[in-house]
């Protein structure tokens, strides 16, 4: 079903529940973001894509990456309130990661020169969760994940040790906006590459990405066969019981 909404006064028709972010993209209205990627489900953690919507005459701030389009919605992407909010997000991120080029550049582009906050971190990760989600939603192995909560939240492998599920595909390095996770050459690793996250190394694929001969694949097939076998036996048992 198509719905009609206005973005900065321009009218657009989109499929119902399309995120505002996508609708704005169609109109060529740029909205900055650090945690959204078209291949992944919206997450809404960086709040940089904040826009103002007017619903029932009551303006409020929402994140455009996950706010669904609906009929008669009025969206504004460049009000003072929106600009103020985005600048504040950048200032906070700049205070967290003062030495990350990607953040510095984006801040400069948005007119934020320095952060007014005193507490400076030395992080490279902005906890946008792109790597975690790509590993989960696209690759399907979830070798990395979030750890902890609040200000102590971080991205890591379980127990901070080498992951036994990582296949070394490198999707996380590709999607990381701040180059926190990198693929490094490691001649001793079977694939010759490995992921570098701070002091932690994730193994590359032990089988040089040849899935046919993979141990894990074999293991998977074996387990599946066992399950099928079990079912077959149970079925036969039940049938013989019925006969009796």
């Amino acid at each position: 079903m198509l719905v009609t909404l206005t973005i900065n006064g321009q009218i657009i028709h989109v499929e119902r529940e399309t995120p505002i972010f996508e609708a704005a993209k169609k109109l060529g209205i740029p909205i900055p973001t650090l945690c959204h990627h078209e291949a992944l489900k919206p997450y809404g953690s960086c709040r940089l894509c904040t826009v103002e919507v007017v619903k029932n005459k009551w303006p409020k701030l929402v994140t455009s990456c996950n706010y669904p389009a609906e009929d008669g919605l009025e969206v504004k992407t460049d009000t003072d309130r929106v600009k103020r909010t985005r600048k504040m997000v950048m200032e906070l991120l700049l205070a967290r990661c003062p030495h990350v080029p990607a953040i510095q550049q984006l801040a400069q582009k948005m007119g934020v020169k320095t952060s007014q906050f005193k507490k400076k971190g030395d992080e490279q990760c902005i906890l946008c969760g792109l790597c975690v989600r790509v590993c989960d939603e696209i690759v399907g192995v979830r070798a990395i994940g979030f750890v902890g909560r609040g200000t102590e939240r971080e991205m890591n492998t379980p127990f901070g040790i080498e992951s036994d599920t990582c296949i070394g595909c490198g999707a996380c390095t590709y999607i990381c906006p701040t180059s926190y996770i990198e693929m490094v050459e490691r001649p001793d690793a079977p694939g010759g590459r490995s992921l570098n996250k701070g002091e932690l190394t994730l193994d590359s694929c032990p089988n040089s990405y040849v899935c046919e001969n993979c141990d894990r694949e074999q293991q998977f097939l074996l387990e599946t066969m066992q399950v099928i076998e079990k079912f077959r036996r149970e079925n036969e048992k039940r049938r013989s019981e019925q006969k009796v």
Partner: peptide
């Protein structure tokens, strides 16, 4: 609240941290 925040979004996680600092 800083320790009880889930830490997902920037305003709550980073904002409260700066607020506490001030």
């Amino acid at each position: 609240l800083m320790y009880e925040s889930c830490g997902k979004c920037v305003p709550c996680r980073e904002g409260l941290k700066q607020m506490y600092e001030i």
